[in-house]
Design a binder for these strands. Structure first.
Length: 555
RNA sequence: GUCCCAGUAGCUCAGCUGGAUAGAGCAACAGCCUUCUAAGCUGUGGGUCGCAGGUUCGAGUCCUGCCUGGGACGCCA
């Protein structure tokens, strides 16, 4: 537990005692005691609305209740320096300040550990994200999903969840047949044969490239080959090359997966039929119009869904249900799927399926990634200038840079529409929040370098008592908020809270920097401040790492 | 038509489990570099929180209806 959480717990416990001994409420009437951090510093380090919550139970005015509570409160036991009753009945707590230096001490004692918690209690969570079809290039929306998904996983990991990252490869359906036929057509064209692209074929240049590769490696041998064999080869070849490309793009975007799960493997390992049997045995299916239906309306879907079409083949849903069953069989207690906005209508049926298989509704969470609109020169850009197609993730990385792209995508709540300002993301200026945060880190590194030249080094045992100025304390407090921010952002699946935090922390550092000098004639003060900025640097670097952004030592 | 998401300052967005005077950044205006990085700091102005009801000590936050924008509504994936 972090210092701040420990303090809050102490205050909570003492408040609980005070309420009992003041006779304001019995144990079973006790509300959840909420300790919040006021926005306004004059309202103390912490505050509680407990007196207002008790108004009904105690049948007294909140301010009078607050008087009773504070009169019975053991301030010493909760490290409280002073209390104040304010507004409609808030109790404000001004804490003894030594907890602030404890924060810095904790960071310095175990830098790589700071912010880590056991909030998740080792719960096995699986996050499935990106999962774009292996038939083309990753685009804007995929990039956002990748950034949000990866940061979320980093967060969950830090907050004590046992997290696994997975990519579901749709390598079994029509789209793969389409890929195969498209590649075949391109190959035949490349060797000068008559061939037409299939209807709805993949027009991308990458397919032409693969065809050329095949020609240069294998020559024209497939020209007269048996169609079935030829197609099997093209299928495997095309799939492998598409996957290589996806992996490379994602890796360059600093996103890696623990598992690349093949849809085809569900067929190969006979994992679909047993799930169908199970649903049938549970009475969740019926036959109608020559098809097999899943009675998803029993679990809140607005209509039933076809599992087996009247031509005998599965719909997309069927293997996907088997896939989710497989995930749960692998021991994951919670599944998080990160899907594009165009899939949100699919949520109720997947949720229904999980429930129909006997699992708890809460075990599946679907996080929707809303659409991204690119803006340049104040105008919406839909298409890439170079290719005329939708803007790809690769283009975005090349043009904007990975740091800015990752930061911008992580910066906003995932389920909100995002306007991505290309000019802002590209600008190396004060307007760009990424550089603002990175600059804070580089600035500290610069101070540490100069300290070293002057014979100072960061002393983990430095006396921190000289850190008494307002800016010193602001910075210590902000650093102290990190563990809770991480745990909270993880629990709420909200990586954007971390970018908000890291921006705040950078701002607090810059403000500190302009008000106080670190390298001074006063050795004791210098050592204390070096310890402080080092703790800040560690926190900045770690938060940036979670977001997927580098922390440069110079800018 | 049904369902989902969004609507907060001129623009882009935060706003935790319902709490104190609704906050940042950008843009506008006024200051701060002989001093550790000015990619920085300090200050000023700017709001019927889409609209209307309701719940309660208290609503941007919860409930109902409506308006606007986006999306989804297939035996496609």
């Amino acid at each position: 537990m972090s210092q701040v959480e420990q303090l809050k717990t102490d205050v909570k416990n003492q408040l609980h005692q005070a309420v009992i001994s003041a006779g304001l409420a019995a144990e079973e009437e006790m509300p959840d005691i909420i300790i919040e951090t006021p926005k306004d510093k004059s309202h103390g380090d912490f505050a509680t609305n407990l007196a207002m919550q008790l108004a009904r139970v105690a049948k007294k005015a909140p301010r009078a209740i607050a008087e009773d509570i504070t009169a019975h409160l053991d301030q010493e036991a909760a490290s409280i320096d002073a209390v104040d009753i304010a507004g409609p009945g808030f109790i404000n707590f001004f804490m003894k300040t030594d907890y602030l230096s404890d924060i810095i001490q904790t960071v310095l004692d175990a830098p790589e550990h700071y912010g880590r918690s056991n909030a998740g209690e080792g719960k096995k969570v699986q996050v499935e994200f990106v999962s774009a079809n292996p038939t083309g290039t990753l685009h804007l929306g995929h990039a956002r999903g990748a950034a949000v998904g990866d940061s979320l996983c980093n967060l969950l990991d830090k907050a004590g969840y046992d997290v696994s990252r997975e990519y579901y490869i749709n390598d079994a359906g029509n789209q793969i047949d389409n890929l195969t036929l498209s590649l075949e057509a391109r190959y035949l064209q490349a060797v000068g044969a008559e061939a037409e692209m299939p209807e709805d074929g993949y027009q991308g240049k990458d397919i032409i490239g693969f065809a050329d590769e095949i020609v240069s490696t294998y020559g024209e041998r497939f020209r007269e080959a048996e169609v079935e064999k030829r197609r099997a080869f093209f299928r495997d070849y095309g799939l492998k090359r598409e996957l290589d490309k996806l992996k490379a793009d994602l890796e360059d975007f600093r996103v890696t997966f623990d598992e690349w799960f093949s849809e085809t493997s569900l067929y190969d390992e006979n994992k679909i039929q047993p799930v169908l049997d199970e649903l049938k045995a549970n009475g969740e299916t019926y036959e109608a119009d020559g098809a097999t239906w899943f009675r998803s309306t029993s679990y809140g879907d607005d209509k039933d869904r076809v599992l087996i079409k009247n031509d005998g083949t599965y719909t997309y849903l069927t293997p996907d249900i088997a896939y989710h069953k497989d995930k749960l069989n692998r021991g994951f207690e919670e599944l998080i799927n990160i899907w594009g906005a165009d899939h949100h209508g699919y949520i109720p049926r997947m949720s229904a399926a999980v429930q129909a298989l006997g699992y708890d509704k809460e075990q599946l969470t679907v996080q929707i990634i809303q659409m991204v609109n690119l803006f340049e020169n104040g105008e919406k850009v839909k298409m890439s200038k170079r290719t005329g197609n939708a803007v790809t993730m690769r283009e975005l990385m090349d043009e904007v840079g990975i740091d800015a792209t990752r930061y911008f995508f992580a910066m906003r709540a995932a389920e909100t529409h995002l306007d991505f300002d290309l000019d802002l993301a590209k600008s190396e200026s004060n307007e760009n929040p990424v550089y603002y945060v990175q600059y804070a880190h580089a600035r500290i590194c610069s101070m540490l370098r100069q300290a070293e030249e002057k014979g100072f080094s960061v002393d983990r045992k430095a006396d921190l008592s000289p850190l008494t100025s307002e800016k010193d304390q602001d910075l210590m407090k902000k650093i102290g908020e990190y563990p809770e921010t991480v745990a909270d952002a993880a629990a709420k699946h909200a990586p954007h809270r971390l970018t908000n935090y890291v921006y705040d922390l950078a701002q607090t550092l810059h403000s500190f920097y302009n008000a106080e000098k670190v390298l001074t004639e006063d050795q004791t003060l210098t050592k204390a401040r070096l310890a402080l900025v080092e703790a800040c640097r560690i926190t900045l670097a770690d938060a940036l790492r979670v977001v997927g952004v580098e922390a440069p030592e110079r800018m």
